[in-house]
Each structure stands twice: as C-alpha cells, then as structure tokens.
Nucleic acid binder design. Structure first.
Length: 443
DNA sequence: TCTGGGGTCCTAGGACCC
DNA sequence: TCTGGGGTCCTAGGACCC
C-alpha cells in the first residue's frame, strides 16, 4: 500500500476512484449546530425500536456504530445525542458532493447519498494522474463542503472501495486513529493485501453468507482463492459463488454506471406500538399509498407492480404483490390494491412494520398507450368512456379487474371488500376530477 | 444487543407460450 | 394422447448495500 508520489500510479494502474464521506449524517448535523462538535452525536431512531443510521467519531469512540439498535447505543454511551435525521438537508449536501465529483469527471456513479465511484479514464487526455485527482477532490470536499472523506484508488471497484475504507479514521481501544485520506493498493501488494482480509470484508458477504462460509471452514479471502467453485455454488448459489471466487482473486468486472435507472421505490414504517387491528393496518395503507404515489409522480413514472410487506412481532416478514396490466401513480388506486393485498393475509399476529413498494415502471407517456389499448379491446361502451373522460377512468375499470384477480388468488375473504375499496377510491377521484365517472362506470 | 428505511440483486417455482 | 425444452412473466422469499 502506498500513497507516496514516488510510485504514483498511472491511469492503467488505478482507473477507478471511490470516495466515501465520513460519518455523513452526523457530520451535517454538527455543521448546522456547532455546539454539537466534540460530543457523541448520532442520527437515527431514538425510540425503543430505533437504530443508529450514522455516528460521529466521538460516538464511535464509545463503541457506537451505524445499524446498531439505539437501546444498545445508549447503553454504551449514556450521553449519546440521538437526532431524528433531516433527509432533505442530507440530500442538499449530497447534491453538492456530486457536483464536486462531476467537476472532476461526469463518469461517476453514486451509491446512496455519501459514496461515489468514478472512472478516471476520461481524464487521460488532460494528463491528470489518479493521485493528483484524489487529493484535489478531497481538498475541494474539505474546503467547499467542510466535510471529511476517504478516497480509494484501484484497478477496479473492488480495490477502490477496499482502499477508501482503509483510508478512513478508525477507533482502536476507544482511541481515534486518524485516516490517511487517500489510499492506493499498488499492484505488487494486491494479492498479499487481499489474502489477509476476512471474507466479511468482501462486497456481498453479510452476516448470513459469512456464517455459511465459516461453516465451510472459509474465514479469509485466501481460503476462497483455493475453494472449488462448484462446491461453493451448492451452498451459496451459482451467482454468489462465481462472484466471490472472482473477488478473492482480485477480479471485478463491474463498470461505473453513470445513469442507473430507478427500478423500485417504496415506503415502510416500523411502528412504535405494533398494530393489532385490521382497520389500523388499512388506515396506514392509505398513508403509505399517498407517500408512494407522490414519489412516483415526482419521478414521472407509473408502476405496474405493487407489493405489500408485513413484519410481525416475531420479526417474521411476508410479502404479497400484484402486477396490473397498466401503470398507476394515484393514491386511490394504490390504496385499493394495497388494502386488497393486506386483506389477503391472515393477520393473527401484531404488525410491527408495514411497507408498500412500487416497481415495473412505465413512462407516463407509454402508459397512455397501454390504457387506450386496454380500452379498445373492451368494447364500444368503454371507448365512449374514454372519449368523455380522462385516462384515469379507464384505469378504474381495469383496476376493478385487478382487485378481482387478488380475490381469485386469495379467496373469498377479500371479495366484496375489494370492490368496496375500489369504489371508495373512485369516489375520492370523483370529487377531485370534474368529469370522472362513479364506480359503476358510464353505463 | 436485538435490529430502520431507502434501495439492489438473486433464486426458485409455477403459468403460459411456442 | 402424452410428452420435451426454452423463453418470459409473475410471485415470494432471502440477502445485501448504505
């Protein structure tokens, strides 16, 4: 490992850069309220079921880490300040962060709000070397955002990410060890460095996979180099096995993808007190539907697939989903489908979490075509309907079909209910629109 | 110590079509 | 009449990332 100018890597040696902002949410809170500086600050849920999303280094000195239950964090650090989180504010900072990276190169890929991969090969004609770019980026983030960060350089995403982690400050025996800022793993040291990492350090190895690997006697990355991929495949599946063996050898073909398409969006909530009645759950469906519908419209998308997730007090989860023949983005349609899906579940246990997710997106414009087609095959009366109404009304007719489908799949339990809900949703629509039809249609 | 909320990807089985 | 195999879509669950 090196970051001395003497062996400054070329773009061929280190084409990929990874930047990671230090303790991002907590650092933004401290910037906005300097009286917090030097104190153990976290962002996360303060309530009984909360977890820590981001911890300042002062909090980390006490052993507090992100993803830790807040109850545990407070036990480790009784003076801990847990702030609720202001995600709009973090997004502002994130945009500024991205715009600084964009000044370096437009070939970058964000991961969450506080990390970015960049492909530096576009800098070739400018004669910029990777270490120069890394230090300059870091200097600008410190100067313009007043945030600290770690930068890693490598020949692929795998090494760049491992290197940036290495570059950051860390806590040893409650003492903060400063980071080096920028790290590059030189070619000659790659193998040795990888060999000494625990399997858990690899991208894609979480608690469950680490446990399986340990049971197979595989604790270190060097163990994975020697393993038979077919054997591994039987325990982890073929994709995971192939990926891990490649990573262990330092091979990572993942590209820096600049314009990733959003594939799903949703909203979930863990309740401070679990819900025990169906009515409560149905009420929250309406709320979730509003949140998701607004997010869809903000994205200019409509979703064909809606999924409901329930988690019970025993932490068991269950999901139900339905794909419609057309896309939806309005609260009433989302509510009707979400409620029908919830009704299809046997709610014998208290509900700890409710989630609603939308996927299988269509562009709004494509959806119009789909709806017209839908109408065209249904007969003349429907055709007349569309000539007099907005496309929403068309989807209402098809929505009833979709709710009927849920009823068919899950039994009579959701029968009458589903259509009631559909009409409820449509009635709301009728108040809003000037010439939308009622649930019975234009007959 | 007992687990949030935003997402991504993979697997496996069933239905359906050719 | 009973059958194969490939491709695609849908559903449900699991694991992972930040």
């Amino acid at each position: 490992m090196s970051n001395s100018p003497a062996d400054s890597p070329s773009l061929e040696d280190a084409p990929i850069l990874h930047v990671d902002l230090d303790a991002f949410f907590a650092s933004v809170e401290i910037l906005d309220d300097p009286s917090l500086r030097g104190r153990p600050v976290c962002v996360g849920g303060a309530a009984e079921r909360g977890v820590i999303a981001s911890a300042s280094y002062e909090a980390r000195r006490h052993g507090v880490t992100s993803a830790m239950p807040s109850v545990v964090a407070r036990r480790l650090c009784p003076d801990l300040i847990i702030l609720p989180g202001r995600f709009d504010r973090y997004e502002e900072y994130s945009h500024r962060f991205h715009s600084v990276v964009n000044d370096l190169t437009p070939e970058y890929e964000p991961l969450g709000l506080d990390e970015v991969f960049a492909d530096l090969r576009s800098l070739r004609r400018l004669g910029v070397r990777p270490l120069e770019a890394a230090w300059e980026l870091r200097r600008r983030i410190q100067g313009e955002l007043v945030l600290e960060c770690g930068v890693g350089l490598g020949r692929n995403k795998l090494f760049a990410k491992l290197a940036s982690k290495q570059s950051k400050p860390h806590v040893v025996d409650h003492v903060l060890v400063p980071g080096t800022g920028v790290v590059w793993v030189s070619r000659g040291l790659e193998d040795q460095w990888m060999a000494e990492l625990p399997v858990r350090a690899l991208w894609g190895v979480g608690p469950a996979t680490a446990k399986k690997l340990h049971q197979l006697g595989l604790r270190w990355v060097r163990d994975l180099v020697k393993v038979d991929e077919n054997t591994l495949s039987r325990h982890l599946g073929s994709a995971m096995a192939a990926t891990l063996v490649a990573y262990a050898r330092g091979d990572d073909e993942r590209m820096v993808v600049t314009n990733r398409e959003l594939k799903s969006l949703g909203h979930d909530q863990t309740f401070g007190v679990s819900l025990t009645s169906l009515d409560e759950v149905l009420d929250h469906c309406r709320h979730h539907a509003g949140v998701v519908a607004r997010a869809l419209r903000a994205q200019g998308r409509v979703a064909r697939t809606l999924s409901v997730v329930l988690r019970f007090d025993d932490l068991e989860s269950l999901s139900r989903s339905q794909t419609l023949p057309f896309g939806v983005d309005d609260e009433s349609a989302l509510t009707a489908v979400a409620q029908a899906l919830v009704r299809s579940v046997n709610l014998s246990r208290p509900v700890r979490l409710l989630g609603l997710y939308a996927s299988s997106f269509l562009e709004r414009a494509d959806n119009q075509v789909q709806l017209s087609f839908d109408v065209a095959v249904q007969g003349d009366d429907r055709l007349e309907a569309i000539s007099r109404s907005r496309d929403h009304q068309v989807s209402s007719a098809s929505l009833r079909d979709a709710l009927d489908d849920i009823r068919r799949r899950y039994g009579e339990n959701s029968v009458g209910v589903a259509s009631d809900l559909a009409s409820q949703g449509l009635r709301i629509e009728r108040q809003r629109g000037s010439h939308a039809f009622g649930p019975e249609g234009p007959s």
